[in-house]
């Protein structure tokens, strides 16, 4: 197995996630795209851990999983609050801070 086949898979997933963040305006779908990005980073970390024969990459991957879980918890709490106040979760309708 080549190093690059894993890294290219991660790159493709990362770009799909970036496209999702740009193209979507539903806040829940934007969070899902961010999960795609975080997963591609994990694949990269584990590939380099295997290439270098170390376990540091595994530790970082676990920490990323934990941070992503916290992010989704807080993010969905925010989305719920926005929905309760504005009756919508389209991010382009939240324009109070526009000058």
């Amino acid at each position: 197995m080549f190093v690059n086949q894993f890294l290219f898979l991660a790159a493709v997933l990362f770009c799909i996630g970036v496209y999702g963040v740009i193209a979507r305006k539903n806040a829940v779908l934007m969070l899902m795209s961010i999960e795609l990005i975080l997963n591609s980073v994990n694949i990269n970390l584990l590939t380099f851990a295997m290439r270098n024969g170390s376990t540091d990459g595994h530790v970082f991957a676990l920490y990323i999983i934990a941070v992503a879980a916290a992010e989704v918890g807080v993010g969905l709490g925010l989305v719920l609050l926005v929905y309760r106040n504005k009756k919508t979760i389209s991010v382009d309708e939240l324009s109070e801070m526009r000058g």
Binding site: M1, F2, V3, N4, F6, L7, F8, A11, V12, F14, C15, I16, V18, Y19, I22, T47, M50, R51, G53
Partner: peptide, 23 residues
Amino acid sequence: VALVMLVAMGLALTRSFGDEKLP
């Protein structure tokens, strides 16, 4: 945007790792 990022990352990966194999 996504395509430009993919091309940039692809070029960097091909130049850095080429056909290096995992152990």
